[in-house]
Amino acid sequence: MAGIDAALQEHLESGHTTLCHAWRITRSDGVTFAFTDHDLPLVMEGAEYRADTGLTARALVQTTGLSVDNTEALGALSDMSLREDEIEQGRFDGAEVVCWLVNWTDVAQRKVLFRGHIGEIRRAGGAFRAELRGLSETLNRSYGRVYQKPCTAVLGDGDCRFALDTPGYAEARPVQDVSDMRSFMWDGFQGFEAGWFTRGRLEVLDGPAQGLWGIVKHDRFDGPQRVVELWEPLHGPVGSGTLVRLVAGCDKRMETCRLKFDNIVNFQGFPDLPGEDWIVAVPRSTAPNTGGSLR
């Protein structure tokens, strides 16, 4: 095995091995989980790799060149390890995964078998299947600009460069009332015109659902009450008094970028891109060809 240390290589060649797998999952919020398929816990690098999780792995597919390495992790859902509600909330999406082959009698003898991140997770019958994608997965993505009239940037990202903490473009306040984790209501929520947060974000800042967010579908007034409705319900409990942050929405039009955000210098669309009529237009002598419809 290429890259293996001498001690582990000697152990493998002995003909009597004491090997197991160890897994470490690190979520984007910094929470770490450590498991092993050995029947006793292991301690590696100051972390305890638990043995009571039922986590196993299918055969690892490893390839040369730029092909994608992949495998699948199987395990049981429990409050002590991976919880179904946290998977439903997307907290494990894109989490980093490292798998070792370990000599459980001497954990210093180990080799990294797989390093990547979690892809699709499926749940059924109190168990889960997590697709694991290798580091070369990112090489299969398409990159480049799309030529279109609307802006291709996300409000506040490195292309847009708009500062979301600019006064008047974000508002943090406790929720007064909520329905189906999708509609959020406030009395006396003034200072922003109706529709100001449409296409924006609602972010949960505290409570059990902290870190979750949703895209705003409607921002309207219903009598004295302001109603902010999301496209999809939040997959976590949000009750009255929970602190949320509303971020102004952008519809990607040049006029919105100029008038609402005063950020036209960073507009990432092509508003003067000719339409299809211009592309199929032909020369004619009766009138100048302006790119309009042919009659």
Rank of each mutant, 00 (worst) to 15 (best):
L66Y: 06
L66K: 00
L66H: 09
N70W: 05
T71M: 09
T71Y: 15
E72V: 06
E72C: 01
A73P: 14
A73D: 09
A76M: 12
L77Q: 03
L77E: 03
L77K: 04
M80C: 15
L82N: 00
E84A: 06
D85Y: 01
E86S: 15
I87M: 04
E88Q: 15
E88G: 13
F92E: 05
G94C: 12
E96C: 09
V98M: 07
V98F: 01
C99N: 04
C99M: 05
C99H: 04
W100N: 13
W100H: 10
L101H: 07
L101V: 13
N103E: 11
N103I: 00
N103Y: 02
W104V: 01
D106E: 13
V107Q: 09
Q109Y: 14
R110K: 01
V112W: 11
V112N: 05
L113W: 01
F114V: 02
R115N: 14
G116R: 03
G116Y: 06
H117P: 05
I121Q: 12
R122H: 12
R122I: 08
R123H: 06
A124N: 06
G126I: 08
A127S: 01
R129A: 02
E131D: 12
L135R: 08
S136C: 14
S136E: 14
E137N: 03
E137C: 01
T138C: 14
T138S: 06
L139P: 00
L139H: 02
S142P: 09
S142Q: 05
Y143C: 09
G144P: 00
R145I: 06
V146N: 03
Y147L: 08
Y147H: 04
Q148G: 03
K149Y: 04
P150M: 03
A153S: 10
V154S: 07
V154F: 08
L155T: 04
L155G: 11
L155Q: 09
G156S: 03
G156C: 12
D157C: 08
G158E: 13
D159Q: 12
C160G: 04
R161H: 05
R161N: 08
R161V: 02
F162T: 09
L164H: 06
T166S: 04
P167R: 01
G168L: 11
Y169A: 00
E171W: 10
A172W: 01
R173P: 02
R173I: 02
P174L: 08
V175T: 10
D177Q: 15
D177L: 10
V178S: 07
S179V: 10
S179M: 10
D180G: 05
